[in-house]
């Protein structure tokens, strides 16, 4: 039986993976509740760059694959607790309070606040991972009862497809633009000022005092400390699981959604010419070998 061998060097393989990552685009939204604090996001994610290294152990290492979040709209929600005035004792007795002031609530209904933060294009994370090449045979459902030649002509032939099967994938938040710090810095103050804006000047002090539990809540919910990067990382990565989701999508994308290389079966050995039809030969027993210099695909044909 005849053999067919295709070899691709590391540079060419880089191009192949780069082209694959270019088509990666997902959008997702999710939300979570953390006590009185909730957050949600709506994100569009794409990949850029990436460096491919062929390894001597037969794996492929991809590093510095940038994850771009654009758009990325994060909304922080705060469930405002009931704040009451009154309830203090009017007539104290040795046995307790005989008469109390009624409690008057400061907010009507069940108030909450939502704060949208536009982080589009302002944060960047990076993916790295190791992959094994995984060949899969694709039976094209569109081929149906078509002959091999008709399927070839109609671009509906069966295929051998090569996928990158992830061994491990890491994601790191690598860059948060300085503007994010500026946006978040003023956020708590802006919310609190908004809270107080209705009050006449002479009432601000007492309103501030009455609202102090709410103000504390806002401050603690938006407690960025000095590390905005860590806060963003915790919010998106830990609380909302965005980074895990991206890793899962990237893993699925390479493992089963987007093949990096395809070989049509039967394989066209010669083009047709005049009245001669193309020469197609079946591809059997496809195998792959990777070393630090190249990827080699071998198969039996005929």
């Amino acid at each position: 039986m005849a053999h067919l061998t295709l070899a691709t060097n590391e540079r060419a393989f880089n191009k192949i993976v780069e082209r694959a990552t270019e088509v990666f685009a997902i959008s997702h939204s999710d939300s979570g509740s953390f006590g009185p604090f909730s957050a949600s996001y709506s994100a569009g994610v794409r990949l850029e760059g990436g460096k491919v290294d062929l390894q001597s152990d037969g794996s492929i290492k991809i590093s510095e694959l940038d994850v771009i979040y654009d758009p990325l709209q994060v909304t922080l929600g705060l469930d405002i607790p009931t704040v009451s005035i009154g309830g203090f004792c009017i007539i104290p007795t040795p046995f307790g309070c005989a008469l109390r002031a009624p409690k008057i609530t400061l907010f009507a209904g069940n108030p909450d606040i939502s704060v949208p933060i536009n982080l589009s294009g302002l944060i960047r994370s990076e993916i790295s991972g190791a992959f094994k090449l995984l060949p899969k045979y694709f039976i094209n459902p569109a081929k149906g009862t078509l002959s091999d030649h008709d399927a070839h002509d109609a671009n509906k032939a069966n295929e051998w497809q090569l996928y990158l099967d992830p061994v491990w994938i890491d994601i790191d938040l690598i860059d948060v633009a300085d503007t994010v710090g500026s946006i978040l810095d003023g956020l708590a103050d802006s919310i609190i000022n908004n809270f107080l804006s209705w009050a006449p000047g002479w009432a601000r002090g007492i309103v501030r005092r009455i609202l102090s539990p709410v103000i504390s809540l806002i401050r603690s919910a938006l407690d960025f400390a000095d590390d905005v990067d860590e806060w963003i990382s915790n919010l998106l990565g830990v609380s909302l699981g965005l980074f895990d989701f991206v890793v899962q999508m990237v893993a699925e994308f390479f493992a089963s959604r987007n093949s990096i290389f395809k070989v049509e079966d039967p394989f066209k050995m010669l083009d047709g010419s005049g009245t001669l039809i193309p020469i197609l030969v079946p591809v059997r027993d496809l195998s792959i070998a990777v070393n630090e210099n190249e990827m080699v695909i071998s198969t039996n044909i005929g």
Partner: peptide, 13 residues
Amino acid sequence: MKSNLQVNTSLFK
């Protein structure tokens, strides 16, 4: 910022 906050301002008005 969106809010359905209806403050009981009557105490101050």
